[in-house]
Design a binder for these strands. Sequence first.
RNA 1: GGUUCCUUGGCCGAGUGGCUAGGCACCGGUCUGCAAAACCGUCUACGGCGGUUCGAAUCCGCCAGGAACCUCCA
Length: 502
Amino acid sequence: MSSETTKRIPMDNQLYIYNTLGRKKELFEPLHAPNAGLYVCGPTVYGDPHLGHARPAITFDILFRYLKHLGYKVRYVRNITDVGHLENDADEGEDKVAKKARLEQLEPMEVVQYYLNRYHRAMDALNVLPPSIEPQASGHIIEQIRLVKEILDKGYAYESNGSIYFDVPKYNRDYPYGILSGRNIDEMLSTTRELDGQEEKRNSVDFALWKKASPEHIMHWPSPWSEGFPGWHLECTAMSKKYLGEVFDIHGGGMDLIFPHHECEIAQAVASEGKQAVRYWMHNNMVTINGQKMGKSLGNFINLEEFFNGTHPLLTQPYAPMTIRFFILQAHYRSTVDFSNEALQASEKGLARLMEAYDNIDRLQPQPGELKKEIGELMTKCYEALNDDLNTPIAISYLFEATRIINSALAGQTNISTQDAEALKKLFDTFLFDLMGIKDEMKDGNASYESFAKAIDMLLDMRQQAKENKDWATSDKIRNELTALGFEIKDTKDGFEWKLNK
RNA sequence: GGUUCCUUGGCCGAGUGGCUAGGCACCGGUCUGCAAAACCGUCUACGGCGGUUCGAAUCCGCCAGGAACCUCCA
């Protein structure tokens, strides 16, 4: 699909990733190099995307970008859940959407499309690359029904009143259930709460593969057992198998999906195929707010659009998409990251400093000479950081080291060679832009930027004239009014610099 | 109650046995017409109590506090 796949995989670049199954870092060795398969649980599109959705999207975007950078031909599948979760729960927030669909006489698929579009728009703003395939659960009912049949044939499921349930205790006699989450079935049997509809199930730990639709249920399909809809966990197993094969490399998602979702996926795959489908399980941690998980059920989430506009009451200002992205990358993906205005502002300023340093590389006046060892090592260290389970905060810390080197040279305090300057530019191009996916929101895709920039330059040239005439009133007026408009004006040895703070 | 995990300087956040990231804020200095920015410097932390060790933020135990999962959730 792209020419970059011809790149040779560097032998010394060995990526280690933390496998939740086994809870340790493991060398990543794809099953069918140079191909690599990646499946990530995407959103259930029944509400606006919030900060929590940005975390896995960005985490696995980095993985996607890095695997491609290492020369792998990556097939990245990220699903869209559009059936099974829409209306069959008691939570008011979710009910409202289904209710709204009915009240406004919308097709459920209109609701789905609406939020899917908004999700895509937010991901685009965050510079999250689209996956190779983005399958929707509702488009794979046939595959899911087939999977249910296979599990029934193997004897690990049973029918009850038109619904099909996975027989967890029976499965557990042949294969260990709970290996991903570290649970054992006896404890679960003794601690699982009683839930509605459980009378159909033989055991409280069993889960639905196919549910018979109640009369008021909007979305339903014909099946050998009933008019109904697929169970919660089925789609990922069916779609990953279809697009990545019976066994594939990496499956990602949020930590909150480990149980029951991913545990059930393992059970479904093993029950139907007799073997595990996933070789590396990766899980990103949660975004918290005041130390608590940001999420729908707690009602403490902030939509991405609210961040971009600054419209949520908890926000003291708007935050650019790249600020959000950088903020998330400044924490390791397996740590929780706590939202606060202070933390976001720190990220905003830090990122601005990096972007400025990058622009400053072009202002340097490098001399012919050798590459400084210190600079040459930064590239290696950044690779080592990413190879160590995608340690983006460490890689970022080296970019800040590079920033100090650049600014120090610009201030005339140190010398810099042509090779140094090239290496620094390559460091930023590779790690900040290509791999971490930061972009210059002002310049990228803005055709009129150049005219705009020249107009500001002209104003500042006039100010420069005034300064030379010691007309401080005029020079300060220009500076103050530009500052009021959000510009930051800097006087330098031989002129001026400016930037627009959003 | 069960399972898993966390507690790092004013804030955020890396780091798994010695070399003690990084960002933001603060303070001092250089620079500047004044500023801003930048640069240099300062501040040097690992919840508590024990233990292992020549040596622990890092390993072990206990205690305290917190979180996630056990129900849909990224």
